[in-house]
């Protein structure tokens, strides 16, 4: 077993240091070392998107990135989406529009959708579907998820 490595990074705006084995993924580091279990494991092959986090503002499957690769990067997880007790408009609309049933895919969808709205605050339905195509949901048929992203976009535009 290779020696553990010290990783200095920024997670949800805070400087963080952690020790991980070189073989541990960023997802495993977040969940098992740092206790940030909001990012979910659905496949470990980058196919389901449940582990999506933002790395320097880009959506990444954290199961496909090593923990040591977080060095010097800015990581945002679902735990960093709300500002204090103020939910992000996406979180609020997911609740109001009943966009989750079991909720296991929700953190990944929120992060992919945040990345989309940060880049494009006025997306079409097709653009939303394209941006979320890497996230699988088995409960909802995506209808209420797509509607929530459209509704959140309206809130963000009105600000």
């Amino acid at each position: 077993m290779a020696k553990k490595q010290l990783v200095e990074t920024t997670i949800n705006g805070e400087p963080v240091e952690f020790l991980c084995e070189p073989r541990q993924s960023l997802l495993e580091s977040l969940r098992d070392i740092l206790g940030l279990t909001g990012s979910k494991e659905g496949c470990l092959t980058g196919d389901c998107g449940a582990c999506t986090v933002l790395v320097d503002d880009r959506p990444v499957c954290s199961c496909l990135m090593l923990g040591v690769e977080a060095r010097g990067k800015k990581i945002t997880t679902v735990e960093g989406l709300a500002e204090g007790t103020k939910l992000h408009p996406l979180q609020q609309k997911f609740l109001e529009d009943a966009s989750l049933q079991c909720g296991i895919c929700t953190p990944g969808f929120l992060m992919s959708a945040k990345s989309l709205l940060d880049r494009n605050p006025n997306p079409t339905e097709a653009e939303i579907r394209y941006a979320l195509a890497g996230n699988l949901c088995r409960c909802t048929g995506y209808d209420k998820i797509v509607r929530a992203v459209m509704d959140a976009a309206k809130v963000i535009q009105a600000r």
Binding site: D32, G38, S39, K40, V78, E79, L100
Partner: peptide, 23 residues
């Protein structure tokens, strides 16, 4: 009527504990 589900906030903030989250 269509109230917000009671466990919703836990599930949009990553706080809800699924099976693999117990340790």
């Amino acid at each position: 009527t269509r109230p917000v589900r009671h466990d919703g906030v836990d599930k949009v903030t990553g706080r809800a504990k699924y099976g693999a989250d117990y340790a």
